[in-house]
């Protein structure tokens, strides 16, 4: 099922309310043919569960790893990813875009 902001930010709130450590990742800038628009969210809980996306699946793994660190240390960070050509996931999409992702702890 496609998760809209309702689900993603609502889930982040629900996780936080249940006492879990939660981080929120947001696409803050894109260059070139970035897969997800600025403002896209990915919510992550302390167990590594996540909802939403900041790319088409290319960098979510790295973002989740950073998010878990962020949940531990509480420091917001900005991550930058180049979207490599070989990770193009859809025919006809000319990749090579770059994205910046802001990761913060919810708490």
């Amino acid at each position: 099922m496609f998760a809209g902001d309702d689900d993603i930010l609502g889930q982040a709130e629900a996780w936080a309310k249940s006492g879990k450590g939660v981080a929120l990742a947001t696409v803050i800038e894109t260059w070139g043919s970035a897969p997800r628009p600025v403002g896209s969210h990915l919510a992550i809980d302390e167990d590594g569960h996540f909802l939403g996306s900041v790319s088409g699946g290319c960098v979510e793994g790295d973002v989740v790893t950073e998010a878990l660190d962020c949940i531990s240390d509480g420091k917001p960070r900005v991550l930058e990813f180049g979207v490599a050509d070989e990770t193009a996931w859809r025919a006809g999409l000319s990749c090579g875009g770059r994205i910046r992702v802001y990761v913060e702890r919810v708490g």
Binding site: E13, K17, Y102
Partner: peptide
């Protein structure tokens, strides 16, 4: 993000109120 801020953001969306969350990148205020 402060949890209360997230709750307010979610409440605004549920109630169809426009809202803007301002995040200072350096420091995270």
């Amino acid at each position: 993000m402060d949890r209360l801020l997230l709750e307010r953001l979610n409440a605004a969306r549920r109630e169809r109120r426009a809202a803007v969350l301002v995040t200072q990148i350096e420091g995270g205020a």
